[in-house]
Design a protein around this nucleic acid. Sequence first.
DNA 1: TTGTAAGCGTTATCAT
DNA 2: ATGATAACGCTTACAA
Lengths: 333, 333
Amino acid sequence: MRDVALLAGVSVGTVSRVVNEVPNVSPAVRAKVRHAIDKLGWKPSMVAQNMRGQASRMIGFIFSDLENPLYASMIKGAEDVLTQAGYLLIVGSSNHRPEQECSLIDLFDQRQADGLIFTITDEDNPAVLESLAGARFPVVMLERDVSVETAGAVIADHYEGTLHATRHLLNLGHRRIALLAGGRNNRVGRDRLRGFTEAHREQGVEIDPCLLRVNEGIAEDAFGFRHTQLLLSMSEPATAILALGRHLLRGVLSACRAKGVRIPQDLSLITTNDSELAELAQPAVTVIRYSAYELGREAAHLLLQRLADRDNWNFSRIHVPTELVLRDSCTRI
Amino acid sequence: MRDVALLAGVSVGTVSRVVNEVPNVSPAVRAKVRHAIDKLGWKPSMVAQNMRGQASRMIGFIFSDLENPLYASMIKGAEDVLTQAGYLLIVGSSNHRPEQECSLIDLFDQRQADGLIFTITDEDNPAVLESLAGARFPVVMLERDVSVETAGAVIADHYEGTLHATRHLLNLGHRRIALLAGGRNNRVGRDRLRGFTEAHREQGVEIDPCLLRVNEGIAEDAFGFRHTQLLLSMSEPATAILALGRHLLRGVLSACRAKGVRIPQDLSLITTNDSELAELAQPAVTVIRYSAYELGREAAHLLLQRLADRDNWNFSRIHVPTELVLRDSCTRI
DNA sequence: TTGTAAGCGTTATCAT
DNA sequence: ATGATAACGCTTACAA
């Protein structure tokens, strides 16, 4: 910058004024400076700018599960909105490790990120919550719910989704519906369990606890396979499975094929979210669908709104609707 | 920092020495400073540190296609290696937009990233290439080939993979094999076309140009559907399709079902890469498989090697092997 | 062993 | 309208 000033025969202050387009700088000087900048190929140092406390126009996104393609759509949704608004989205993945989440939060904080979209792994982890509370930027939680007052949240309506899906199966006459899911300790898992329970309560059907297969952590591939096998070999097997989680369908289908169980004749099946496999499996699988892309967009919008009005700390929660897509994997019993 | 120094009754220089663990600082002073730091909850400002030109221990990853789950595995592979080595991986997605790639490169450069793993969208884009050449960090290309001397590269062996797959079909007696692929202008697409051509040349089989459906950009979902339809309604239809690209399988299968074409009786099919759908479709689809995770790991290793030995600018290219996974989608003709 | 002070590249507040 | 200069928070010669 000093070199530019020297070459243009002005002071560094003037160079700063030119690049920042502050008024009250004569066209002649402006031209000289512009010329010197081009000639020297100088570009302002963001690091130095940040040291002066400028906004970085960079938003962080921390998510936990690389293998879940839903996140890709969420990121894309957020990115489309943020890019439009002149922000750059930087993504870090935590792989379900709270320590990694802390590192990333610190990193974004120290790098002066202007905001954060976050799918926390463990909603109650004190270390992560503390990092979050200490951060200088607004935070929007995606598909999660934390007790941090200042954080916004965008969540798909898993309660409604599960409620409808369960009702659908109950209306088809099913009385032994198994629930296969993960994330018992996060908002998504809890909402799903609530919906499942509520639908049964409505119709006065008792839930056999053996049919509840809700994993503590994320429901992995193997989880779906193993528990489907177990469910199918019970003395009184499940007649329907609600497989709620992106990784579950594969295991469920494999287990059914291995055991020669036909869908939907022997077993009705609903899963979430929609996928190539659900659509093109034979028979095509009924799914609870919601738009992860929309989730990402909403999160970005909420964040932008916060950014525009930093004092408006009202506690907003946005729900994105779900939809039951009827295909051929369920039958009346 | 001044506050810490004040509270500890030392100078800021000493505080710096303590946190940076330079030797020759008395244990007594060290303890005092540590105590003051804890008491004040002070943390060094990375921004200021970077202004002094310190390493940031942060690696950038720019990729183009959020919707391709292969990237998730690559990121995970890179992340596993880099986290182990004490680096943080920051991911930015370009959505196939060169301008976005430039922004990201600039950002990583300005933020003092220590290195970059990059899947460039257009191997010949001058603007991106220039940004790349101007960057201060080592770069490793992933699945791409650029003319920048100093960049390393890690690439799956698509030539071999396609060669074997094509041979397999030719050996089964197929003479009208269609090639459905994207990325005609990048390394992956070129290697695939070379492999396809070479296998035909080996066996003295002429390629009907009508069977070559290689898209310029990425082969989208609709591309697979449309061209499969076209291929199947030719006067002399293809007897086999080589669908090389992550998004293609869905469209191909949909088109076959719509037209009532049975696999493998009416049409043999090989695709890449392996996926849930390929594995669980009926019939299960033969695939060219390679480990995207390994690709990511190798890229990270190469980068780490460069970082450890900054002068070692030897031009390294690493190839990751491919494997033909035989399933039920091909038959003798 | 520790303190002092220059310097990193900006922006902002004064003067002029 | 422009220049000089302090300040941002740190590292590192150099001095003590």
